[in-house]
Amino acid sequence: MRILGIESSCDETGVALVDAGVQGVPRLLGHALHSQIEMHQAYGGVVPELASRDHIRRVLPLTDAVLAQAGLALSDVDAIACTRGPGLAGALLVGTGVAHALGVALGRPVHGIHHLEGHLLSPFLSADPPEFPFVALLVSGGHTQLMRVDGVGRYTLLGETIDDAAGEAFDKSAKLLGLGYPGGPALARLAERGDATAYRFPRPLLHSGDLDFSFAGLKTAVLTQVKRLARAAPEGPATSRLADPLSEQEKADVAAGAQAAIVEVLVKKSLAALSDTGLRRLVVAGGVGANTRLRAELNAAAARRGLRVHYPELALCTDNGAMIALAAGLRAQAGLLATDAPAGRFDVAPRWPLAELASAA
Rank of each mutant, 00 (worst) to 15 (best):
R2P: 07
G5R: 09
C10S: 03
E12T: 10
D19A: 10
G21W: 04
V25I: 14
R27V: 15
Q36V: 06
Y43H: 09
G44A: 13
V47D: 14
V47W: 14
P48D: 01
P48A: 01
R53I: 12
P61Y: 15
L62G: 09
Q69H: 12
L74H: 13
D76Y: 12
A79S: 14
I80S: 15
A81Y: 10
G85H: 08
P86Y: 11
G90M: 06
G95R: 04
T96C: 14
T96F: 14
A101P: 11
G112H: 05
F132N: 00
F132D: 01
P133G: 01
F134I: 11
A136H: 10
L138K: 04
R148V: 08
D150Y: 05
V152G: 00
L157P: 00
D163K: 02
K172H: 04
K172D: 00
L176A: 00
L177T: 00
P185G: 00
P185D: 01
P185I: 03
A188S: 10
L190E: 01
F201K: 00
P204E: 08
H207G: 09
H207R: 14
S208G: 13
G209C: 12
F213L: 03
S214D: 12
V226E: 11
K227R: 12
A230H: 03
R231V: 15
R231T: 15
P234E: 03
A238K: 05
S240W: 13
L242D: 02
S247C: 03
A252E: 09
V254N: 04
L266R: 09
K269Y: 13
S270W: 07
R295N: 04
E297C: 03
N299E: 15
A300C: 09
A302H: 05
R304L: 12
R305M: 13
V309Y: 07
E313F: 12
L314F: 14
A315I: 13
C317P: 06
T318S: 02
A327N: 05
G335A: 01
A338G: 12
G344C: 04
D347A: 14
A360M: 11
A360Q: 11
